[in-house]
Computed example of a mutant assay.
Amino acid sequence: MLKWIGIFVLATVVLSGCMDEKRSPLETSIYNTNDDKIGTATFKERPEGIEVALKVEGLEPGPHGVHIHEFAKCDTPDFKSAGNHFNPMSKDHGLMNSEGAHAGDMPNVEADGSGLVDTELMLPEATLKEGQKSLLRKEGTSIVIHSGPDDGMTQPAGDSGDRIACGEITLKADDDETSDPTEPDKKQE
């Protein structure tokens, strides 16, 4: 009997480890308000949090606020379906706020003169694993890019302007086979 219990426990641990491996890395397609794919965000579980590799094009040059929002819904034209910032610990907004920040708050990104953003960010208070701080809890979350910079303090969202791009963060995010405009066309190579 102990032998079977041991086998069951071992199998459970192995299967749990496999499930976490499928969660990281996780690539999410990002779409603009015209429902055109403009890039990707790749989420990787790290010991210090989630690393976010963001690569998008077609933005206005300059700074843009970027946040994780509470629902995996990116309905055009305004992406308000994504809800508020991901905030499982009920903190105030803002990376510069002594009472903050939301788990979904990230530094501003800078689009170059051609409108390209190619950068890495960290979400130190979030995870892809199971739990309250998981970006994949319930149906998932979303990543939203705003028209202007986040001021790091203003409640509830940093006064960062309109939502101009959105990507749904779900376990099925990797299934999107829409071509990525930020990558060279492999057929032409």
Rank of each mutant, 00 (worst) to 15 (best):
G152F: 03
G115C: 06
E57R: 15
E21Q: 14
D92R: 12
K129T: 01
E110Y: 02
K55D: 14
T141Q: 00
E130K: 06
E130M: 02
I68P: 02
E70V: 00
R23Y: 06
G131C: 04
D174R: 13
A101R: 04
K37E: 14
E51W: 02
N87L: 12
G6W: 06
N34A: 10
D174F: 11
E99G: 01
N108V: 11
T170S: 11
E21H: 10
K172C: 05
A11P: 04
G148F: 00
D185N: 15
H69D: 11
S98C: 03
K133G: 02
S142Q: 01
T40C: 07
G62C: 15
P107A: 11
A103G: 02
D20S: 04
D36A: 13
E51V: 03
A165H: 07
P181S: 01
I143Y: 00
R137M: 00
P88K: 07
S90Y: 09
E21N: 12
A72I: 07
H102K: 03
G148D: 06
E177P: 06
S81F: 06
P156V: 04
K187G: 07
R163H: 06
V109L: 04
K37N: 11
E99F: 00
A157R: 10
M1F: 11
T182V: 08
K37C: 14
P181K: 04
I145F: 03
L128C: 01
P47N: 13
D150G: 05
S142A: 09
F43R: 12
K133S: 01
